[in-house]
Computed example of a mutant assay.
Amino acid sequence: MEFVGPRFCCVIFALMTGLASGLELAITGPSTIERASGQTVKLECQFTLGPDDLAPLDIEWSLLASDNQKEDKVVILYSGDRAFEDYPVMKGRVHFNSADPKNGDASINLTGLRSTDTGTYQCKVKKAPGVRSRKILLTVMEKPSRPRCYAEGPTEVGKDVMLRCVSAQGTHPLQYIWEKISDSKLLPAIAVLDPVGGTVNVRNASAGVSGTYRCRAKNLVGSEECILHLNVTPPPNTAGIIAGAIIGVLLFLIILAVILVCCCRARQKKKYEKEICNEIREDVPPPKSRVSTARSFTSVGSHRSSLGSMTPSNLHEYALKPQYDKIPSSEDFDRPPSRAPMAAPIFTAPAPAPAPRVAGPNLSRMGGIAVMIPAQNRDGSIV
């Protein structure tokens, strides 16, 4: 009986306070709401006033902090018959549902929802001496982004083929659903599906696994899908590829060797021809006509020059020798041959006989070449 008295007093005080204030909140609308990002949501808060609630009406909506060490953030406020909506938490995206909230409608509308808007919202109505509040949990979910479908690893017969489906954005939990949309429209019997990870594992794949697959990623607020065309091919002929590569390398080396041999032979041939051109052959006869005639005329000139250097002592001996170097003139060819008597030896030095002259045209017909002979004085020296 000792504990009954205080409890009974508290109940009586609460009833008296509630009857005295007369302020009540109507429980309308859900206390937990889930919406997708970008959508609009209405948070319900209806109230009724009593005749004893004479103080000014204040309505405050706030976003409660998840950590007790942080402060709650005011979203919108109604006080003194005026609405204040320029708080930075949801500036420009929150409005009262009613143009005059004091009529009993303190509900608000949130537009352009974002994932950061997720939290617990509290509606507090004050009209002294009455105070009432209500909490609503809002979860803003993000729709899955378009997933990416691909095959991981080699897609060959006899290999393990892994199909993956990944959505980069979206509020968890996400669920992935794979299905085959070609041929039998059934996943292979040996396929292992992971709806949370979004994978399909096919062990020891065969050619029948090939086809078109579709993956759909979804959550509570939406879904997206992607298409994958899978082609399982036979394994490549590794031995044939290696043999072909070896043959190609050998052919390349052979062609390169042939090119080098041809270049060396061409270089040797060119060097041999150059040496042959510079070599003097001993079995080749000397030139006859023009070169011999020119030499005869040159020797005649040399004899003439030597005559100028003779003294009277050796001039007699030279006169006794037959003149084989004398060139016949045109008069000698016209005159018949005759035997002239041998001249008697004299002891005086005769005057040097003038050298026979040959006409220019005759000299050219005979193949001779004109040679310039330097002049000499009586002493035999060159002028």
Rank of each mutant, 00 (worst) to 15 (best):
K269M: 05
K269E: 13
K269V: 03
K269T: 06
K269H: 08
K270W: 03
K270Y: 01
K270D: 00
K270F: 00
K271A: 12
K271P: 02
K271M: 05
Y272H: 13
Y272K: 12
Y272T: 04
E273T: 01
E273K: 14
K274F: 06
K274V: 04
E275C: 07
I276E: 14
I276M: 13
C277F: 09
N278E: 15
N278K: 14
N278H: 13
E279I: 06
E279Q: 14
E279S: 11
E279R: 15
I280T: 14
I280P: 03
I280R: 14
I280C: 05
R281N: 10
E282R: 09
E282Y: 09
E282M: 08
E282C: 11
E282S: 10
D283A: 03
D283T: 05
D283Y: 09
D283E: 08
V284Y: 03
V284E: 10
V284A: 04
P285D: 02
P285Y: 02
P285V: 03
P285M: 04
P285T: 02
P286F: 04
P286S: 03
K288N: 10
K288S: 13
S289W: 11
S289M: 08
S289F: 13
S289A: 09
R290S: 05
R290I: 10
R290T: 09
R290V: 07
R290M: 09
V291I: 08
V291C: 05
T293I: 08
T293P: 01
T293K: 13
A294E: 06
A294P: 00
R295M: 10
R295G: 08
R295T: 06
R295E: 08
R295P: 00
S296P: 00
S296Q: 04
S296H: 03
F297L: 12
F297C: 00
T298V: 05
T298M: 08
T298Y: 13
T298G: 05
S299L: 14
S299R: 04
S299V: 10
V300Q: 04
V300A: 11
G301Y: 00
G301A: 15
S302A: 11
S302I: 11
H303P: 00
H303F: 13
H303S: 12
R304D: 01
S305I: 01
S306I: 12
S306N: 12
L307V: 07
G308N: 03
G308L: 01
G308V: 01
G308A: 15
S309E: 10
S309C: 11
M310I: 04
M310S: 04
M310G: 00
T311K: 12
P312I: 04
P312L: 00
S313W: 02
S313C: 06
N314F: 06
N314M: 12
L315K: 01
L315R: 09
H316M: 14
H316T: 09
E317H: 10
E317Q: 09
Y318F: 15
A319L: 11
A319S: 09
A319E: 05
A319W: 02
A319I: 08
L320V: 05
L320C: 11
K321G: 04
K321A: 15
K321W: 15
K321R: 15
K321H: 12
K321M: 14
P322R: 06
P322E: 12
Q323N: 15
Y324P: 03
Y324G: 02
D325S: 12
D325K: 01
D325Q: 07
D325E: 13
K326S: 10
K326R: 14
K326V: 03
K326G: 03
K326M: 05
K326A: 09
